[in-house]
């Protein structure tokens, strides 16, 4: 089965694509930290973050709609976490309602926090989408490794990237095999079938793990992952990381004066 790329557009060419992954990783992390630390009520700062991201998207030559679509994936999760805040946060009441025997009130500051969490999450996820769309997954892993990210975690991510679609295929095939022989039935029966499928998938993955390990051992793997040094952190990379950090500082300073 054909699947789309996890890191779609990452093999294109643009100033952002050409940067060292380490530079982009650090810049993205700095951006997210700045966004998270920006005070709740400084909306102009958030606006400027968005402008900054827009500039980066233009530079990356990745279709803005693609980034937008990917970034919206996060919204349901954030809503789930944040939706109750306006109801429980004390303070000036923005509105209150009587529903049956319950009295519900929504506070002004609660609403503000709610919008704020949504904005922060959205900005962060856009920056991550830009990172993913401008960096090949393999170089991202290399960058993480050179930044002294724990090797075991890098290997874990690498296996995940390699096997996620193979497992997806496995699930699809199992589903097709089930559907070609199943004609509905009671829900308890169906749940049992799904349970068996999950068990089978686990066993198959476990056995595949053993085979993959055998293939690694057969080529001299002894528990230490080694890689070649292929990245070059140049002047442009330093310039990008420094420039972006300065922009973030400027935004916050402006905010302070404002």
């Amino acid at each position: 089965m054909k699947h789309s790329f996890l890191d779609q557009y990452s093999d294109r060419d643009s100033p952002l694509h050409r940067l060292d992954p380490r530079s982009k990783l650090v810049a993205t992390l700095a951006f997210i930290i700045a966004v998270v630390l920006t005070p709740v009520d400084s909306w102009p700062a958030y606006g400027m973050y968005l402008v900054l991201l827009a500039v980066l998207i233009v530079l990356s030559r990745v279709p803005p709609l693609y980034i937008l679509r990917r970034s919206l994936v996060i919204v349901p999760f954030v809503l789930l976490v944040a939706v109750l805040i306006p109801f429980f946060k004390g303070g000036e009441v923005a509105g209150s309602y009587n529903i049956g025997m319950w009295h519900i009130s929504v506070s002004q500051s609660g609403l503000q926090i709610f919008w704020n969490i949504l904005a922060r999450a959205w900005l962060s996820i856009i920056s991550l989408s830009i990172l993913a769309a401008t960096t090949r997954f393999a170089s991202l892993l290399e960058g993480l490794e050179r930044l002294r990210f724990p090797r075991v975690l890098v290997m874990l991510l690498s296996f995940m990237y390699r096997y996620i679609f193979i497992l997806t295929d496995e699930v699809m095939r199992m589903k097709q095999a089930r559907d070609s022989r199943s004609f509905g039935g009671k829900w308890r029966w169906q749940i049992k079938t799904v349970g068996n499928m999950v068990g089978t998938l686990f066993l198959r993955s476990y056995e595949r793990g053993e085979r993959v390990y055998a293939a690694m051992v057969a080529r001299g793997f002894d528990g230490h992952s080694r890689t070649l040094e292929r990245l070059r952190f140049g002047r442009r990379d330093a310039l990008f990381a420094a420039g972006l950090s300065l922009a973030l500082v400027a935004i916050n300073l402006f905010n302070l004066l404002y």
């Binding site: 997954f137 390699r162 085979r211 993959v212 055998a214 293939a215």
Partner: peptide, 13 residues
């Protein structure tokens, strides 16, 4: 040793 299933043999990105 070349294993039967290339998806087991090829595990890198």
């Amino acid at each position: 040793l070349v294993f039967q299933n290339p998806d087991d043999q090829l595990f890198s990105p």
